[in-house]
Design a protein around this nucleic acid. Structure first.
Lengths: 127, 127, 127, 127
DNA sequence: GTGGTCTAGACCACG
DNA sequence: GTGGTCTAGACCACT
């Protein structure tokens, strides 16, 4: 039985159902969820992450319309397919916008690099 | 007469009044608004950026409780003071979380560096 | 279901939302509202005391930023905690100022004592 | 030349013009302003206490309608008459309401007595 | 049903 | 003109 868990950020302005959608996609991209595999049932996931059933239901419903998961009547949802490239592209586009924003706010490249190094470790320039 | 303008992103999940708060803080940090200077009146800013008066009022009210601006009855709001360090710290903390998230999602350091270079220009490592 | 009611003084210069805030705090101090308990929903209280929904919403929002109550999305607000000592201290400080004022205006101690006796009953000095 | 000064409490919800009215009445009651005497001119008082001319003008206008002061064309306002008894009665009525309120909020007689003693000095019960 | 946000329009106190 | 407050009514996200 697959168990999924991830934290929900209630202070974020991103709706909970969207956070769930993103996390599911992430799991697929990272290979933790593979094509044909069942995702946790709505009720189980809802209970595990501590949100309302309707919220998970909405996330799954939208993922289904996007073709990421596929409903199997009476059984649940199975992972269908996910365009990984597009997923990454979107993420990087978001990053681009955030960095532009920070630059505009007067944050220097150096500061960003420090954080980058902090998070990803290692030197910025490997010889 | 000081004129302020900035776009509001209605597709964002961030409430309009918070977007306004952030922009005002940004202006102060960047020195476009200086201590003792009047910010645009609620009505004027509301009209300029195309939102309701109450929305700007709420933004200003919260900025006032945070001590960033100060209301002068019948005259308007003047810039009080803003802890620039804290402002930047928060921004960088947010960046840290975003990068951690991206790393977790499988985005490589190289990809982030590319975007960084794209946005900030120049080489990553100056000899 | 908890029912709350109190009158709003529209002749007072104190804004309605502040009157609501004070009443809620008072209820907590007096133990009529206990930690963890839900306060009436914004809509219900608004209807009960005959004010607009937004007015109650503002009162609750400010109480929340003060940490007195805590919002639970889709469920309501629960009582968090209230520094009773501080609440009383503020009240007594206000009283102190009022009495100073009265004294300055030439009201005698005797007169105040009479009122005090009237309101609180009993003798001033129990032998 | 009579000079008047008193502080305005901008944090109070009581409108400034009402604060001015009360202070003028107080001065009369306390004998600092006597019948027939000129009160400071609107402009002078406004400047002295740091408020707008219109605000003082409004206070004087209302005091005039109440018969407390009397306009002398081209010269200013002179003190007319003030029903001292009524003035005190109102003050004491206000005090009564405040004490009732405090009692309701759970403040004990003892605490009020302490403040009373603090402000007025001396013992509560003089033998 | 809940809270959160926003709009449109109003009145008051103050300058 | 300024900010401060309030109303009426709307849509959204969430339980």
């Amino acid at each position: 039985m697959l168990v999924l868990w991830f934290p929900i950020d209630y202070n974020s302005h991103v709706p909970v159902y969207k956070q769930i959608k993103e996390k599911i996609k992430e799991m697929i991209v990272k290979g933790h969820l593979k094509e044909g595999q069942f995702v946790p049932s709505i009720r189980v996931l809802a209970k595990d992450i501590g949100v309302n059933v309707n919220t998970v239901a909405r996330a799954y419903r939208e993922l289904a319309t996007e073709g990421v998961i596929k409903p199997i009547k009476g059984e649940g949802y199975v992972v269908a397919s996910l365009n990984t490239d597009e997923f990454f592209k979107e993420k990087l586009q978001t990053l681009r916008e955030i960095l532009s924003n920070l630059k505009e706010q007067g944050i220097s490249k150096k500061e960003v690099e420090t954080i980058l190094k902090e998070v990803f470790g290692g030197d910025i320039c490997d010889p």
